[in-house]
């Protein structure tokens, strides 16, 4: 085991990949708390368009983000196949609405390539890097940038 680490020079990580539109994305499996089928959310006023609203996740109020919209793609109405992936981002839990979950990948960090320049700045800040595997291109989401910063509260 330790030998393997020495020879590969990188730690193995597992990622969950999913589809958003016709693109593939993934997040580190350690950040994923659960995956749930879509249920209608309560709309939040005064909120950015990519915030679908909030749902009740076993007593906690969970914000749901439309990942496609957050990545600048057109918002698609959720279908029965739509799911949201509950992830821990910093000290907050959020649900990311995606079209479908694909599979679990096991990779080493040397498979992750830097995000190419073609993407717009906004998108690039959410993408940690790009993984090429079996001819697929999968972008890894950087969770800490996904939610807007909390506004400073008046004392």
């Amino acid at each position: 085991m330790s030998e393997e680490i020495i020879t590969t020079g990188a730690e193995r990580r597992e990622l969950i990949s999913f589809r958003v539109g016709d693109q593939e994305y993934c997040v580190d499996i350690m950040a994923v708390r659960e995956i749930r089928g879509w249920s209608p959310a309560t709309t939040l006023p005064q909120s950015p368009g990519y915030m679908r609203g909030v749902i009740n996740l076993r007593g906690a109020v969970l914000p749901i983000m439309d990942l496609a919209c957050r990545l600048g793609m057109p918002m698609v109405e959720p279908t029965v196949r739509s799911v949201f992936i509950v992830v821990k981002a910093g000290d907050r839990m959020i649900g990311m609405l995606v079209d479908a979950v694909s599979d679990i990948l096991s990779i080493t960090d040397d498979l992750v390539q830097p995000t190419p320049d073609v993407a717009c700045d906004a998108v690039r800040s959410f993408i940690r890097g790009i993984i090429s595997i079996d001819g697929r291109m999968i972008s890894e989401i950087s969770l800490d940038r996904l939610l807007p910063e909390r506004e400073a509260l008046a004392a």
């Binding site: 309560t42 939040l44 005064q46 909030v54 009740n56 109020v61 907050r92 959020i94 939610l147 509260l153």
Partner: peptide, 22 residues
């Protein structure tokens, strides 16, 4: 709301109603 999101203008907090919705 702030625990997982942030303060929202016009909204004091959230609750969960009898139908399980927020």
């Amino acid at each position: 709301l702030e625990q997982n999101y942030q303060q929202v203008d016009g909204v004091a907090a959230a609750t969960i109603l009898g139908d399980g919705r927020v």
